[in-house]
Simulated scan of single mutants.
Amino acid sequence: MQDFVFHNSTKMIFGKDKETLVGEEAVIYGKKILLHYGGGSVKTSGLYDRVMGSLVEQGIEVFELGGVKPNPRVSLVREGIALCKENNIELILAVGGGSVIDSAKAIAAGVKYDGDVWDFFEGKSEVKDCLPIGVVLTIPAAGSESSSGTVITNEDGWYKRATGHNSMRPKFAVLNPVLTYTLPPYQTACGITDMMAHILERYFTNEKHVELTDRLCEGALRTIINYAPIVLENPTNYDARAEIMWSGTIAHNDLLGTGRIGDWGSHDIEHEISGIYDIAHGAGLAIVFPAWMKYVYKHDVNRFVQFANRVWDVEVDLNDLEKTALAGIKKTEQFFVSIGMPVTLTEVGIGEKHLGEMARKGTERGPLGNFVKLQEADVLQILRLAQ
């Protein structure tokens, strides 16, 4: 097990109607906030009015910036930075899912920086401080409500890149499972895939003697696998929605990665796909992960056997461990199909045209992943396996 420091400072406020408490939490950090959100669903659902009512009750002056898209754009981030600087904003409140939260984090970092915010994503500068961030979560998926990272897309070249710093962890996050009742099935399934991928990135490690976190990862995966079909069949099942929502947070708040070095190659490959084609992140991960597994499983067959047995209940064939490992990969792929996810690039209309470009761009700053280091040729092979 690796040495580690685990520090997660986000205050989690979980349960029904908890969004009405957001004003009490926000006012701790200031009286001028930027309310950041995506499309019209925040308003049509009534959530906007409840949040605004809570803020106004505390005497908070609210500035607004909507329009966040999936795979959030740096152009809107820059607009938000200017708005915050002009109005001396003291807190950014993100109301939405991972895209809105990631956009808020990038704005919060950019406000404290004199250069262009994209410098952080290119590695030209490092985040040192951020404006405080609060969250009202509406889509359980990215885990950005308590993570230290953000992912942003630059329309100039369609690069999708990540950066992070502990100051990016939101000060508080409100999680009300009821807010997820109206999510379309596809969006729910994308979120489920995203949180599973966050766990899988940590699970496939070369680190030995990580039994506790292995079991935590496996337990979280089994919980998601159990409740996914329930929420898709009965979207207003509160208990199932609550299990999924909390799983999404636990999947990416760094607890499951303590003492181990995760991989993250699949995420980096997916970023190239959704950066160019703008597909849902979860859908891209459902395509990439099984292909990555097929490409790398021989590196540590025993870990894949453990995964197959403990997560999917595949009986271990001691005479043919590869058979067991491949069965676990197949079960993963079949699960994604069962919840309505694509598992090939062809299904989302992606052909050969940009595969080489994606492999090149993905590795231009060095090899991807840690479980197995992936060079440009490896990434290209994985993309072809995913076709």
Rank of each mutant, 00 (worst) to 15 (best):
G123C: 05
V51W: 04
E207S: 07
T346V: 09
A220K: 06
I287A: 06
V151W: 03
G351Y: 06
S75E: 15
V56M: 04
Y29W: 14
G369F: 13
T258K: 08
V311R: 14
P72I: 00
G366K: 02
L93Y: 07
I329M: 13
S266P: 07
H252V: 02
V42P: 01
I230E: 08
E79Y: 15
V5K: 02
S54R: 04
Y277D: 11
D102V: 07
E376Q: 10
S54Y: 06
D129N: 14
V151C: 13
A26Q: 05
N8H: 12
Y48I: 00
V127E: 10
E357V: 00
L374D: 10
H7P: 03
F121Q: 02
K18N: 11
P342N: 05
P177T: 11
N370G: 03
G115P: 14
G262I: 07
V314F: 08
G369R: 05
A359M: 12
T223D: 11
A240H: 05
H7Q: 14
E90F: 01
I139R: 11
G110R: 03
A197H: 04
L183C: 04
P170I: 13
G349F: 12
M52F: 13
Y113Q: 10
T344E: 10
T213V: 14
R310Y: 09
D320R: 00
G59I: 04
V117K: 03
G284F: 00
I101M: 15
D317A: 09
G80Y: 01
E333Q: 14
I133D: 01
A162Q: 15
Y159W: 02
G115N: 13
G115L: 03
G15K: 08
V231C: 15
T346Y: 14
Y295S: 06
F336V: 09
G38M: 03
I287N: 01
E211H: 10
P70T: 04
N302W: 00
V372E: 12
H299F: 12
L321V: 11
G97Q: 10
F304M: 04
I101A: 14
D3S: 09
P342C: 07
L131S: 12
Y227Q: 01
T324V: 09
T346A: 07
I60S: 06
F371S: 04
V127Y: 05
W118S: 07
R73C: 00
K373V: 04
V100E: 07
T213D: 08
F335H: 14
Y238S: 09
Y113P: 11
I133Y: 15
R50I: 01
G67R: 00
R384P: 03
A189K: 02
E315T: 15
F63A: 09
V22K: 13
N253G: 13
S274K: 01
E233K: 10
I273W: 10
R303L: 08
